[in-house]
């Protein structure tokens, strides 16, 4: 699967952009938090697309955000 790029996103309607990112994020999150993957992905999709693209390319920043999201969910 080719990497998702800003230009690929820009070619899609806004409502499809988040969906495209979510389809990439979900399997990565599912590997780490199987039970919470749907909720964590939904939370992270509220972040700006430009930052989400960086997270898809950087496992460290993605995992940091995942842990932040889990902490928020557990406090919620």
């Amino acid at each position: 699967q080719e990497p998702l790029t800003a230009s690929m996103l820009a070619a899609a309607p806004l409502h499809e952009q988040k969906q495209m990112i979510g389809e990439r994020l979900y399997p990565l999150i599912h590997d780490v938090h199987t039970q919470l993957a749907g909720k964590i992905t939904g939370m992270l999709l509220e972040i700006d697309n430009s930052e989400l693209l960086l997270m898809l390319e950087s496992p460290e920043s993605l995992h940091a955000k995942i842990e932040e999201a889990v902490a928020v969910l557990q406090a919620h």
Partner: peptide, 22 residues
């Protein structure tokens, strides 16, 4: 509103409900 349904969950192949807030 109620926070019980927050966050909008994402599931592959299913349109994400969170888009309603954008």
């Amino acid at each position: 509103g109620s926070s019980i349904n927050w966050p909008p969950e994402f599931h592959p192949g299913v349109p994400w409900k969170g888009l309603q807030n954008i």
